[in-house]
């Protein structure tokens, strides 16, 4: 028991010359070529979303297409420009948890808004 604790302790100490931490993360320099490709892709998607808005699509499809393209663009920015693809598990988990919480809040609010008047008409 004591021995276990000792080992556990040592692993989590951040010593200047000590053993490398379990969460140690080597920074990754993203190449300019990837930035260029992502930037160009984002511009293409911008063109696509403007073009799609000029076409009269049935029902709410215009909104669905525009927001779907916005989500794709956001994902590209987050993964590549913001380095999340190359980040540590901690950063990935933080970002994912944040977006998850945000989606829960939006969904709950919208669910309440849509259903509040149910049964009253």
């Amino acid at each position: 028991m004591d021995q276990d604790q000792g080992q556990h302790h040592e692993h989590h100490l951040h010593l200047p010359h000590g053993p490398s931490e379990p969460t140690h993360h080597e920074e990754h320099v993203v190449s300019p070529r990837i930035y260029l490709v992502i930037g160009a892709t984002l511009l293409v998607f911008t063109g696509l979303t403007v073009a799609a808005s000029l076409v009269d699509l049935p029902g709410d499809l215009n909104a669905v297409v525009a927001l779907a393209i916005a989500c794709i663009k956001m994902t590209l920015v987050v993964l590549f420009f913001m380095h999340v693809k190359y980040s540590s598990g901690l950063t990935k988990l933080t970002v994912a948890a944040g977006f998850f919480t945000f989606i829960v809040l939006i969904t709950m609010t919208m669910t309440d808004y849509i259903s509040r008047a149910w049964g009253r008409w």
Partner: peptide, 9 residues
């Protein structure tokens, strides 16, 4: 998209 695009049509 929210302000400019989704209401065009």
């Amino acid at each position: 998209p929210l302000l400019y695009l989704i209401s065009r049509h």
